[in-house]
Write a protein that binds this DNA or RNA. Structure first.
Length: 289
DNA sequence: AACTATCACAACCGCGAGTGG
DNA sequence: TCCACTCGCGGTTGTGATAGT
């Protein structure tokens, strides 16, 4: 049994790419495009590489619009908030960071940002002992599915591979910073989400309690549009991690800002949520991208 | 200077989803 | 409807660079 390999591993080169191979692949793709078939590409390009390897090399390294390193604080915020709400959907997260790849974002998270967030969580007094899985898992989410209109982005999510996502540290909702015109701003067409129930919404100002849900179908919304004037429209400035860790509501709202359709997704799946409260919204990627 | 530990990033692997015949 | 094939994703591993002892 077992899956047939995509190529004969014994006959193709593996490991790091040489500059010559890079140039060969780059020039071929620039001249001919991908051609809709990565498996056949290496042979056409004269490369002794697996098609998947070529695809990965092109997407993660050779593409002309790739940025490496030098993550800004704004990008940190995007990654953090989206990871907190949708988990390790790196391709989705990367799609909101122009020039970044899923692999790059994933590596950045695993090597730097996660540690930073963990340190912040520890500083915020979150314990890792209550449920295992680290400070964030411990701080996560209620045991039952969160009402989607209330907390579209706060429930823990169990991915297809079974790892538990961390949610925001839930504390009593605190009064939110005021933002003229509300946090959410998009150029895309807008649709209304159900208002946040009074139990929570009453503690928030109007702009926050009735989020306006833009449709991402209207076009990609990238970082500059998301953060608008930077700190001006973003609820937390310098102490970003600390602020979010102490205020899950803000995190939910921020995530809903990026992916407002989360509410609908969770709403559609809440009825079939697993008894443990974890569910994976079907078609999440398709809906969001 | 030599060795070890840690870090950062690139690359690989296996799986699920999508698609066309 | 089924099957084969490919793509894309996310987790994991490998490797070179750097820091520390």
């Amino acid at each position: 049994m077992g899956r047939a390999p995509c190529c004969d591993k014994a006959s193709v080169k593996r490991g790091p790419w040489s500059p010559e191979e890079d140039e060969q692949l780059r020039s071929y793709v620039q001249r001919n495009g991908i051609g809709g078939n990565w498996i056949a590409l290496p042979q056409k390009a004269g490369l002794n590489r697996c098609g998947k390897s070529c695809r990965l090399r092109w997407l993660n390294y050779l593409r002309p619009d790739i940025k490496h390193g030098g993550y800004t604080e704004e990008e940190d915020r995007i990654i953090w908030s989206l990871y907190s709400s949708i988990g390790s959907r790196w391709s989705i997260i990367a799609s909101k960071l122009p020039g970044r790849t899923d692999n790059d974002v994933k590596n950045y998270w695993n090597t730097k940002l996660k540690k930073k967030a963990m340190a912040m969580a520890a500083a915020a007094g979150l314990s890792a002992s209550s449920s295992g899985g680290g400070a964030f898992a411990a701080a996560a989410a209620p045991a039952t599915p969160t009402p989607p209109a209330l907390s579209p982005a706060s429930s823990s999510v169990t991915s297809s591979s079974g790892d538990v996502r961390f949610g925001a540290a839930y504390t009593e909702p605190q009064p939110q910073p005021q933002h003229p015109g509300g946090l959410i701003r998009f150029d895309a067409p807008r649709t209304e989400l159900a208002p946040v129930p009074p139990a929570v919404g009453a503690q928030l100002d109007g702009a926050w309690s009735t989020p306006v849900a833009p449709a991402l179908d209207g076009g990609d919304v990238f970082l500059p549009e998301l953060i608008g004037g930077g700190e001006q429209l973003f609820p937390y400035g310098g102490d970003f991690f600390g602020g979010l860790l102490q205020d899950s509501r803000a995190l939910e709202q921020l995530s809903a800002c990026y992916f407002p359709n989360m509410a609908e997704i969770w709403g559609a799946t809440a009825a079939v949520a697993a008894p443990d409260g974890n569910c994976k919204p079907p078609g999440l990627c398709n809906t969001l991208t």
